[in-house]
Amino acid sequence: MKFGILVNEGPYNHQASDTAYQFAKAAIEKGHEIHRVFFYHDGVNNATKLTEPPQDDRHIVNRWSKLAEEHGVDLVVCVAAGLRRGIVDENLASGFRISGLGQLVETGIQADRVVTFGD
């Protein structure tokens, strides 16, 4: 199955991003396709390369980058939500790209299922 994923919450503050990542990883392992992960609302904060969590904690941003690197997952950050929160190309972690909300609607059209992670 082809999945679209919507992440609506920022890292660490909320579990949504962790669960979305685990879901994406499990889906890929089961042979499904992740059409796109779209980061919206505070979810755009998953894309900053400036985070430095304590060493004994998971590195959420790097985890996403690795997923993109290893499986070619398209990680898209909403441009408008990003600009509001200071997520711009200059501090974008590897594997992410900034684009418009149309990418979310397009995932809805192209994917078999869109799964939302957030409140």
């Binding site: 684009s99 418009g100 979310l104 609607v105």
Partner: peptide, 21 residues
């Protein structure tokens, strides 16, 4: 183009109409 995230709707998404809520 900017508002739709640079998607060329003629090629990628035209024809498919889904029910969005």
């Amino acid at each position: 183009t900017e508002s739709t995230g640079g998607i060329d709707m003629d090629e990628e998404s035209s024809g498919t109409i889904k029910k969005f809520a």
